[in-house]
Design a protein around this nucleic acid. Structure first.
Lengths: 152, 152
DNA sequence: GTCTTTGCAAACAGTTTGCAGCTGG
DNA sequence: CCAGCTGCAAACTGTTTGCAAAGAC
């Protein structure tokens, strides 16, 4: 994420905090920055904490927990869970929501399911169950078109 | 699950234990039985433990943890995770595979997506992408029909 | 100055482990 | 009989909480 974008993230954070009458603190800015700077797309509390230590910021772990939860409430981070038992957070980039992948068990390739198809699936779920999906986490494991072809 | 099926589950357990040189114990049979008898399709360790207490079986929680893990290794149970932070187990009914849930962000209710619908989704994925799904992990987060209704 | 936020340590929940005694084969 | 299993309690991990002191506005 480039310098300009990082500044933008910080501006959004400040605005969001102000609007909801929360205070702008160094800790909140720092933690938000960790996410903006991080090459990985999702971090556990432990990982955020480590990265803070690397920067010589002495923030308590309790504050990381509280802040990351607050940032989720503000809609700046999204809480996700990939491996079971470990909660993670990622930047809630507004144009990116949910995760939906096809994972080939032969060649290991992972592809994104086309948005169009995801929308169709969500519509189907709603129609058949009355449940209104807002977010999702979808993974299919199987054989990709290529591997099926080469197998023959 | 009917009486005959419950007996079958127990026979499979005994065979599986024997084959792998584990011992057949009352605790293992009991815990397996809890799953066979349970109307819910997935149980946390805590819930299994409670059900054992209801039956006046004084099994230690450590044993429940160990057993449920063993039964998963044997392929009789499957480990799943629906709400974050709570691990659950379900009967690894051979004709039922993968995990697919609807999780209501209002009331916390979690429901299983009907198999029929899952199959339809898989067929659609195959048709539109050429990818052949064999297993999956699907979670939708949103509002359940009940909460939508009560909200109005 | 006031009300929020932080850091610390203690509390908590879920899970794992070491070990003495019990038990299935 | 004896290796494997269980129960118990203690240890551990990840997370939450109460409170006094520090900080934002």
């Amino acid at each position: 994420m480039g310098g300009a974008e990082k500044k933008m993230v910080n501006d959004i954070l400040r605005k969001e905090l102000k609007d909801r009458n929360f205070r702008i603190t160094a800790q909140r800015e720092l933690i938000m920055r960790i996410f903006a700077e991080s090459p990985e797309d999702h971090l556990s509390v432990e990982e955020v904490y480590r990265k803070l230590l690397d920067k010589r910021s002495r923030i308590s772990k309790a504050t990381v927990y509280r802040t990351v939860e607050l940032l989720s409430d503000l809609g700046l981070l999204r809480k996700i869970e990939i491996d079971e038992g470990i909660v993670r957070f990622e930047l809630a980039d507004s144009n990116k929501h949910g995760k939906h992948h096809l994972i080939c068990t032969d060649c290991g390739e992972t592809m994104t399911i086309p948005d169009r198809l995801v929308e169709k699936i969500e519509a189907m779920v709603k129609q058949e169950t009355g449940f209104e999906p807002e977010d999702h986490n979808i993974k299919f494991y199987g054989k990709c078109a290529n591997c099926i072809k080469n197998q023959k």
